[in-house]
Design a protein around this nucleic acid. Sequence first.
DNA 1: TATGAATGAGGGTTCATTCAT
DNA 2: AATGAATGAACCCTCATTCAT
Lengths: 218, 218, 218, 218
Amino acid sequence: MTAKKQHRTTAAPVPLNRAEELLIAAFELFAERNFASVTIKDIGAATGANTALIYYYFGSKEALFRATIENAVDRAFQHFRLLRTQRTTPPEVIAGWLENHVELQDLIRKMVKIGLDYAGTGRRTAPIDRTVRRFYDDEASAVGDAIRAGIRQGLFRKVDVKKLVTFISTHLDGVMVRSMLFDDFDVRAAVAELQAMVWERLGWKPDGDRSSSAVRRT
Amino acid sequence: MTAKKQHRTTAAPVPLNRAEELLIAAFELFAERNFASVTIKDIGAATGANTALIYYYFGSKEALFRATIENAVDRAFQHFRLLRTQRTTPPEVIAGWLENHVELQDLIRKMVKIGLDYAGTGRRTAPIDRTVRRFYDDEASAVGDAIRAGIRQGLFRKVDVKKLVTFISTHLDGVMVRSMLFDDFDVRAAVAELQAMVWERLGWKPDGDRSSSAVRRT
Amino acid sequence: MTAKKQHRTTAAPVPLNRAEELLIAAFELFAERNFASVTIKDIGAATGANTALIYYYFGSKEALFRATIENAVDRAFQHFRLLRTQRTTPPEVIAGWLENHVELQDLIRKMVKIGLDYAGTGRRTAPIDRTVRRFYDDEASAVGDAIRAGIRQGLFRKVDVKKLVTFISTHLDGVMVRSMLFDDFDVRAAVAELQAMVWERLGWKPDGDRSSSAVRRT
Amino acid sequence: MTAKKQHRTTAAPVPLNRAEELLIAAFELFAERNFASVTIKDIGAATGANTALIYYYFGSKEALFRATIENAVDRAFQHFRLLRTQRTTPPEVIAGWLENHVELQDLIRKMVKIGLDYAGTGRRTAPIDRTVRRFYDDEASAVGDAIRAGIRQGLFRKVDVKKLVTFISTHLDGVMVRSMLFDDFDVRAAVAELQAMVWERLGWKPDGDRSSSAVRRT
DNA sequence: TATGAATGAGGGTTCATTCAT
DNA sequence: AATGAATGAACCCTCATTCAT
């Protein structure tokens, strides 16, 4: 959105243009370290681009940071959508959502980290705030819909949908944080535990080894 | 512990010595921004101390950072302990723990933020790793003991204690993160929700408005 | 050699490129004071260059120092070679060498001073060690060859060439040091004295006022 | 002279007073590195003295430096005198002088280095200039006297005494410099070579292995 | 005589940013 | 679209020096 050209809607490993290449490298670096610690030169070095070129594309480090967030959210959406389309029944959607957090944990962890970095400093901007929120809300509403559908279909017990969704996604954030703090934290197990709790809350008994229960206990 | 000298003879809110004063200011700043963004000069300005003095006490910015973490953990412990002694029955201990996260949310949020900052960069050190871990473990074990006692006393249903404790504290981290990301996140409500879930899990029915249920719904 | 780029297309006193300009200014300053006393800012001020530019070209003060030594040795070589080509007979070569130390005393004194500064601190590096040695060895071998030729031609008495060369060049170092220590030390006279001693040792009788005896007594 | 108390004329390993202890440590450090590179704290650390104490004794770093030079010259004199008294005949005095430069090479090298450091910067002071000169002159006059005596006694050929003395001491400086520049420089051999040259100049034939020829060839 | 605390003035180095080409 | 050169503003850190005790 910020970079001069881009929007590649097609599949995947098309030759990235320079701007997108920079955004991806920036994303990795900002996530690994943080805004203040990453140098424009670092990003240049990671992509073989001249420092001035980054300015040519993005105008300033802050603008690059913003563009990085937007681009990352876009890419995350694609990933999620891809995985979502295959699920249909409410339990499958919910299980799928949780599974995503295991499969894409690396991506999500990075996004949470950048999100925290973004939120933590005086760098905030309404458009970016909206982008971040959009990411969280979109996910939440998908799951909310699934729960509501499940209730309607008599699969789930009646619950306060909004509260439950918030509970789940808050917990998932906790899982991500934990895995940042401690190298030996078992994300898969934690998500499995969460899933068990959710099924209990919804009064849903998954049948043992069906694929809907994508997150297997370890 | 970390600063060169200490000499505190009297009880508590005595005029802090210079080193501790610096540590506290540093904690606030590091939590608000992050290691890379906070200037030694900032810390000096916040305490009216000359920049060189900080080096006199701590030797380097990194050492100051480490000392800050240790000092913060120490102080957090004191807070927690203070609040803990008043609770006696298992449900009270658990409710108290949760309540602490509401009452001391500011402190805890800061600690999580600094913890993430610490974990995120190449600045890690075994002693500090241990300090951070100690903080988490100590809390966990206190709650674990309470749950086990509750089970023994027949108050709670039999559960996998370790898993439950991890679940709770992971969720609490999630709550903290959420409140960092979104200004309007209601920590009290989220913790209340968690408490409800915990009681359900433990098969414990608190009697409506008794003080044991310290975290009131909003 | 050391600076990033060079592009010199034309012959000699073309406008120096920035890097070389810096190296020359650095040489003067390092020789006048010493590594520790010379500020990057000093060098910048002497060339009208921004401090950061020096880092752009050389990366660090130490690297600049090393580059300065290499560059100075290079330049000294050029000077020496220029003066050497004009001499042909063995006595002329020897006399020329000595004369060089009078004519180029300023340059040589500076090189010795920087050499001592370099040798004195923990800043030593194999490549630079080699460069310095190369400077001394090259000179020595040129004179050694001349003496050997003179002996072969029956001009000189048979002597231990290596020892004599070491003796002469050690003495020349002494002359340089003396002229550093005492402003009123007469370099020309000292070198003339050395020459007399050398001729005596070699059993060579120069005819009074011929140009071969370039170092006239004062 | 500068330090508040001192002058110990007695033999050697008497318990040094604090000021002298500082001066000796300072001498070593200034010689090893140089004025600018040595920290007051370094000197303090080397003696276990508080930084402020050094100021108490010497007032400033420069004053300490000056005091160090004076003290070092004093101590060098003592050394030289001690060794000189044992020699009596002119050849013995000369040989002894040369030998001193081998035996005390470490001390002398340090003095030359500090001398150069002193001469090199704008730190010069008339009194110190005099002290340094005194050191050189005193030595020179002792040797000059010996040569003159030798000539008078018919042991030596008639020579220009002043010139010869300058030649010798200049060469000795050269030897010291060389040994600073190159770790593998053989001081003893170089001095032996110089001695041979001197004997030749003076027309003196030492008898093989007598103790007068203190500097043995290697 | 001795010391811990404190400070002002840099010094080396980095970095976001710009500009001419 | 791309780059090398250049710069101002900081930033971390050091150090000579002072002062109260």
